[in-house]
Design a protein around this nucleic acid. Structure first.
Lengths: 203, 203
DNA sequence: GTCTATATTGTGATAGAC
DNA sequence: GTCTATCACAATATAGAC
């Protein structure tokens, strides 16, 4: 395997990622990916047998972005509020770097939900340590009683939704000003954990 | 225009809605829509000139579901906490009845964001009365200081995200048990406004 | 208005020269 | 490994009979 090979394969993956993530499996065109990579269609099939295989490579990679290595942290014995802050910051940072990933994942999973089975297996997601911790804090009266499932969904909602709804929010809420929306996203790193902790802490 | 005509057109619209909303513009097939409506492809083009025109009709209709007539309410002089409860309940109810609409809108808008411009014009969305009310309540010290833009996005996030992410949540958080997820969605009618109000009320 | 048949175009995939 | 040319088929759209 020569250097040239590697570099072509990388170019394909990079181009495919750009196109697939913006347009989805069905919206993407092999021609478009080839153009973006500066090669022709035939080479795509030389490196990856089919559109499906190429898509699979991109999709798997994107999944890894949505399931970062914070599971260890969630299992740890850090204080609840610290975990909430680390969790939200981690996701908001990851999506700020890859803003199209959330919408991509959402759409493709609703197209073919069976993919989640593999995702869950490979990622080793386990929300129960966190759920148990929330239950313990509720029972010992350290926080306002809260259903841990709703808490988790609320956390994920506030981290992910703004990236899925970016075009709506820019137009409706920010007068089509993309810059002030960027600023807004940066603020969420602080605002979201602050909001969540306010909702459950006793004062 | 005979009764038969109307009924065929309605059948087409109903079928198209089913297919488009589940599969999106690019995933949907005219053949599939024709089958669902119990007619053939040619009739689709007789009633709606092209796939694009048919899609446009469905999309516009779906938008109206995501922008219900609660704008009047938001402009009213109801107490802030009452508005928050009405707002969240209204959205959660609308999406419970049309669970595929949020994902559909999100995906299509990221495919062609320019559609939002028309949407906003026609719907007359204006968040400023609500924003001003939040500012007033903050300044008079009635609530914990909160940025109104983040508050609105948080509200929308918690109402909409669970419907966009349904397949993920069922598999990862609810052990593939769709029934307990349904139960969970019903609970959110109470949990979401409760959570939001807790986050901003002084105690 | 509704159908069958067909035209037309787009797109994933392959063959084969270099 | 990379290209050009082409195939095979799927999907939108139209023509024309009834």
């Amino acid at each position: 395997m020569s250097n040239k090979e590697i570099s072509t394969e990388q170019a394909i993956l990079k181009a495919a990622k750009n196109i697939f993530i913006r347009k989805g499996m069905e919206g993407a065109r092999m021609q478009e990916i080839a153009d973006e990579a500066g090669i022709n269609k035939a080479l795509l099939h030389y490196y990856f047998r089919s559109k499906d295989k190429l898509f699979e490579a991109i999709f798997t990679d994107a999944i890894l972005k949505i399931v970062p290595n914070i599971m260890e942290m969630m299992k740890s014995d850090l204080p609840l509020f610290t975990k909430i802050e680390l969790f939200t910051n981690n996701y908001i940072d990851a999506f700020t770097e890859n803003p199209f990933v959330p919408g991509f994942i959402m759409h493709e999973l609703s197209r073919d939900p069976s993919k989640i089975v593999n995702m869950v297996k490979n990622a080793g997601i386990n929300p129960h340590p966190f759920i148990d911790q929330v239950k313990r804090e509720t029972e010992s009266g350290n926080i306002i009683p809260v259903d841990p499932y709703h808490l988790i969904v609320n956390m994920l909602s506030m981290c992910i939704f703004p990236f899925v709804a970016t075009p709506i929010l820019i137009n409706v809420l920010f007068n089509k000003n993309a810059d002030s929306y960027k600023e807004f996203i940066l603020q969420r790193r602080k605002e979201v954990p602050h909001f969540i902790i306010n909702a459950i802490k006793k004062k």
